[in-house]
Design a protein around this nucleic acid. Structure first.
Lengths: 205, 205
DNA sequence: TTGTAAACCAAGCGCTTGCTTGGTAGTGTG
DNA sequence: CACACTACCAAGCAAGCGCTTGGTTTACAA
């Protein structure tokens, strides 16, 4: 929410039809859903609550989505797509693996703490509420996302910047970053930039 | 489950009346609950399912616990109490902050991957399903748990072993360790001991 | 002006949920 | 033997759930 509304990546993806316009009724619905799902959990959030938050009747939700689970799927799907887009854009601006890794860390911290923060939290904690087919679909998207990390880490290993095993390193970093949702506040003393640098220092000495 | 059943800490705590005997009906019920809550989520697990897993009628659950939430609370409470006991026991066997920190990391990895693994996962992901009062109570227990970590880290800072800020370090480590539940398998190529050492190396160079 | 589709409302159906109730079998104690 | 207590069963209630249905309003194009 602190992020600029004129987000080039988002409007680009909207134009390409890859995500829903956040300004549209459906987009606002997903935003409210992410908020409720994060703070109450998916199962504890009722369609009546969600409808009230959006300002419509509960039955009207099913004009936009065919089921409650479909709303959850939409939130998760679009969150990954947006963050893949942002990471790709950040990567091409960096000259070498070290700066690219910092950019990825910074991007992921942004995704956890800025506009997609609530949706990211839902993505991490509510995947069990998807049926098997939808879980597979989201897992596939996650793999595309992780592929970006592994490409950069492998390049870092090749040019000597990184010493760790690529899988262990990515997983330790993923844990440290996603866990920051439970304690870090971007409006506190520590800035996201500073936290990103300190996190990079776990990987590079 | 791979951990020895003759667990000195557990039988000690049972004797003191601080936790339920895992062999008793109530203890087995909580074990089954942890399993279901982890794999399906608390809200998606019905009392009928849980009762079936234990082998009794759904109504009979309420002879042991006054509500479904009370079962969740029991699982969380006893898990923390057990792990505080284990950490205390491990700490007194180590001579200096470096080895004490390794012991804590090892203990927490054990708690995530061995007998209390499913309950720990529930502890991390299902706290929102507790009402306000119960959340406060569990938070208080967590603070006792965290106090052990901060004591060791502070001593490490004082004798020069550790350079990080104590809060940031603990939180980065907590993230890396708890996240390992999503990818690490103790029966795979990497042992818990090895993972513990590699995790320690994030903190100490 | 008419036709069409999207967006929504009002009402409620069928089902599942956590939990309650009244009673019973088994076990130990005086 | 009488009593008490624990552990459980069988049945079902009240409430809340996701979702459906039939109809209305709004927007816009032909």
């Amino acid at each position: 929410m602190t992020q600029t509304m004129a987000d080039a990546v988002i409007s680009e993806l909207v134009k390409q039809g890859k995500i829903t316009d956040p300004q549209s009724a459906k987009g606002r619905l997903m935003y409210e859903a992410a908020h409720l799902f994060k703070n109450k959990g998916y199962e504890r959030t009722t369609v009546r609550e969600l409808a009230k938050a959006v300002g419509i009747q509960s039955g009207s939700l099913f004009h936009h989505f065919k089921s409650k689970e479909d709303i959850l799927l939409g939130v998760m799907e679009e969150t990954i797509v947006v963050n893949i887009g942002r990471m790709n854009k950040a990567l091409i601006q960096q000259p070498d693996p070290k700066h690219q890794l910092l950019a990825l860390i910074r991007c992921e911290l942004d995704s956890v703490h800025l506009d997609t923060g609530e949706a990211m939290s839902v993505l991490v904690s509510e995947w069990r509420s998807l049926n098997e087919e939808n879980q597979k679909y989201i897992l596939k998207l996650r793999d595309d996302y992780e592929a970006l990390w592994f490409r950069v880490i492998r390049e870092g290993i090749q040019n000597g910047t990184i010493q760790h095993d690529e899988f262990i390193l990515r997983r330790l970093l993923a844990g440290a970053i996603s866990w920051s949702a439970t304690w870090f506040r971007p409006d506190g003393n520590l800035s996201i930039d500073e936290l990103a640098k300190q996190t990079l220092m776990l990987a590079i000495r």
